[in-house]
Nucleic acid binder design. Structure first.
Lengths: 195, 195
DNA sequence: CAGATGACAGATTTCAATATTTGTCAGCCG
DNA sequence: CGGCTGACAAATATTGAAATCTGTCATCTG
């Protein structure tokens, strides 16, 4: 790739790394590839990221943050908490299924990256459960829901719906019964929250 | 291993195969090892199992069947359906956690075997969901539960509790919060079934 | 003759040599 | 000087030749 006159920033390195990962996959994407894509020596990349692992983790964080952003709208939007909970869960399921279906290789790549960055994933999950907690708390406030511990209930809802957002289950998302299974699960969980 | 004068049966081969898998792990357990353990030539093993895959699948089936047996008691035992449902879920979680904790290598071995025999696993899961369906149906009969479709609800309960029985989650079973998370989830599901 | 054997071909795995990559750092350049 | 370079050692990955394994079958044996 042609060298650039622009300043070398962490941001530019992250973009180039995403591109290299998309092209070569997680196993063959090297720091040298990233440097080549930017037209610099690999030593320069190490000036911005201490290790290859740190670079990959930064890419993973960006990706997880983008995912969480798309859901925040449902978490704090207006409207009935029960409907918002349903929308939030459906939106999460749809987004995951779309990503896994549209570009399986890229999805697999991010699966590998996520497995490497347990800490970033834990933070992301805490973020999502936080969004759910706000919905459940509001539902308790309006009387829609009746649970003793909204945070624990939100956690349970997130874990119970794992089959429809945990990447480990990606292969079942396209099965014909997935849609009905998802509907049954959401109904059961919502009834549980109503108390 | 010493040769035996006993007749070579499928059963004896399966026992020897389990032993070889326990000793060598799934990657290094060969048909020749099994034959050697029985004091016969590997050709004789192929008289009882067409392929190595078929042999492994038979071992997997035995193991899955033993697991399902232990739960059947709760499925059809006497007593309150809600309590039986709770006992069934707890028993499944405890059994899995015990196996994963007591002998992680053997657990990992069976995880590999199960991944190879999708069909046998699907049958096993159908069996378990069948047990759950019977409990839910009985609960609907006694008025404890109120769901429109007991089979769909049982399916949802099984999938919702995946985090506490799916081997893919084994690494979270020993976390300190697992116990509380399990309790929250079961409470939520039971409330959902009560309608 | 039913069941076991072991030689065999092709597929798969292992292992050691070879090549690449990671991460460092002394020195270069604007 | 501040940032970039590229030579380098150690760690990791790739390769391909040798060894092992899978599955078959003609032959043997009780």
């Amino acid at each position: 790739m042609a060298p650039s006159t622009e300043t070398l920033t962490a941001e530019r390195i992250l973009e180039a790394t995403e591109e290299v990962l998309r092209r070569h996959g997680p196993a063959k994407a090297t720091v040298v590839d990233v440097a080549r894509a930017l037209g610099v020596s690999h030593g320069s990349v190490y000036r911005h990221f201490r290790t290859k692992a740190a670079l990959r983790e930064a890419v993973t964080k960006r990706w997880l943050d983008r995912t969480a952003e798309g859901l925040a709208a449902f978490a704090s939007g207006p409207g009935d908490p029960e409907a918002r909970l349903r929308d939030w869960l459906r939106s999460l399921f749809d987004a995951k299924r779309r990503k896994a279906g549209d570009d399986p290789e890229l999805f697999a790549t991010y699966r590998v990256l996520a497995a490497e960055s347990a800490e970033a994933v834990a933070a992301h999950i805490a973020d999502l459960i936080g969004q759910l907690t706000r919905i459940v708390e509001e539902g308790v406030g309006t009387g829609t829901f009746a649970v003793p511990d909204p945070a624990a209930a939100a956690r349970a809802v997130f874990q119970a719906s794992g089959r429809f957002h945990d990447p480990g289950y990606a292969r079942v998302w396209t099965r014909p019964e997935a849609q009905a299974d998802f509907a049954s699960l959401v109904d059961l969980l919502v009834r549980g929250l109503r108390g």
